[in-house]
Write a protein that binds this DNA or RNA. Sequence first.
DNA 1: TTCCGGACAG
DNA 2: CTGTCAGGAA
Length: 260
Amino acid sequence: MCEVMSQQTQMSRVVPYWQDWMRAWPDAAALAQASTAEVITAWGRLGYPRRALRLKECAVQVRDRFDNQLPHTYEELVSLPGIGDYTASAMLSFAYGQRVPVLDTNIRRVLTRAFAGVESHGGATKPEDRQLAEAVLPQGAEQAAVWNQATMELGALVCTAKSPACQDCPLAGVCAFLAAGRPGLGQGRTRPRQRFQGTDRQVRGLILAALRELPAGESLGQADIDQLWPDAAQLGSCLASLDEDGLIEIEPGGGAHLPR
DNA sequence: TTCCGGACAG
DNA sequence: CTGTCAGGAA
């Protein structure tokens, strides 16, 4: 169950967290009963803490709608909080052995380059991406799962976005992108510049980290909160946004605590 | 389309 | 220090 959320970060970072999660909450019903504060604390420094909230809500729905068992259809899976196209497809292919094309940005980049000969455009998955993935997917479900994982690995390790190691690539002999002289390499995606220093993301992280380190059930006083960040206005807006997201609860006196 | 963490490479 | 990485939801 909890492996669902592991798809977002490097596995080496996820494994220890995942082990703790599975020990604490072995199934959906167990996770559904956990307090939000426990879930956020266990999420630790994995990033994107709102996903911890979605995972708990997902567990509630699995328990209530699906008799505590994860559904095995795409439509039912994507209807759950925090599960989108990629995660649903990955579960169907890797966990349930169904013949399903999996599309993450790595796979899209590899397939678009190798078979269409052009640089992947990035952005949301398009129908043509899915069409291509379906067209080249092996017929057998087991081979398809291996293909999905292999393509993902190839994109992560060899056919990288910025500087693909074509000299080490097993597809070099048949790659349309390489044959065409790698047109537009690196300019396919103008990354939305997302610095971190001084942003709300950093401030939100600081606040949550401070609350996570508190003994269970305790609050952070306003004086302690004020010391976290010099810009009072930004601090205030971040506190408000965290409260809106349901990640913290602001007290009348100006203190804050994780949702009980 | 934009926002949302955090770790790590360079 | 800056740049990079990535799926889901509003």
